[in-house]
Design a binder for these strands. Sequence first.
DNA 1: TATTTGGTTCTTTTTTTTGTGAACCAACCG
DNA 2: CGGTTGGTTCACAAAAAAAAGAACCAAATA
Lengths: 153, 153
Amino acid sequence: MLSEKQKELIERIGVFHEHKGMQPLVGRIIGLLLVHSNAEATFEEIVEELSVSKSAVSNALTFLQAKERITYHTKPGDRKRYFSLRMKNWSEELEKEMLEITKMKIFIDDVIKEREGSSCAEFKKCLVDFSDFLEFFKSEIPSIFKKFRSQKA
Amino acid sequence: MLSEKQKELIERIGVFHEHKGMQPLVGRIIGLLLVHSNAEATFEEIVEELSVSKSAVSNALTFLQAKERITYHTKPGDRKRYFSLRMKNWSEELEKEMLEITKMKIFIDDVIKEREGSSCAEFKKCLVDFSDFLEFFKSEIPSIFKKFRSQKA
DNA sequence: TATTTGGTTCTTTTTTTTGTGAACCAACCG
DNA sequence: CGGTTGGTTCACAAAAAAAAGAACCAAATA
């Protein structure tokens, strides 16, 4: 069902997602759904194509649904679920990732507060600068998407 | 040496970095260096304040140096190394993180290529759109920093 | 009603990651 | 020299993450 090239690509996609902290199987399922010729796969197919246990797949799919990365639909007279990526979401997904970066600001600000009245002026200036940038970046995120849309049209 | 509040903050910073895929001790060392009143710490101090073994600290510090997240300097007549965060780097660091997001483009493009000639027009459109955005975002990164600098001045 | 299908849950096993501790080494110190 | 200091390395242990497998369940089917 899957060519060597496809399997390799799935593996690469899996590793990429692992690096972002996802568990291995979750990443490879994303890979499979991206590569799969119908852009969707059944529970069974996932078990077979990735040769993992049903329980592992069940857990991974539950996780992916909780994170709203996938959905499934069913076909009349067919009890199987057809899982697919919620691709229309990609911009929300990316926005989340960008926001994730800015989350640092929360503890950076706490560090700044904690260091109030202490020395290390140079260091503290860096921290404030850093925090300012994170705030700036957060506020810029919507504009980035807006700019892309308008530039595209 | 460290207050409860400081320890808690270090722990939070540690967990944040763990979520990004760093190993626990590495994240907590970053936390310690951020919170430490001198903004620097010796090997010994790290061992004591975080109550971990010398070997664990040695490995974590080697890692952090390899990643260019820390440096050390020495003091005349003192063999100890004083480790500190390379804070002036924060913008490079952030830039790397943003670029990391765009790395997805590489395999998204491979997926697009792999799907050439297949159906799922809707899905493929999403992929192309996604890829285009990643390209756009990558090209925008320098402007974001530039805009921040000019807006600050 | 018995059986198959599609999937979940729970317990156990395997694997990986993280950290320990002892031995070691090089530089300096007395 | 012989010992101390500052740190590294390596073999191993503890802990956590990932996956397996069997038992189970609910809906559909025969």
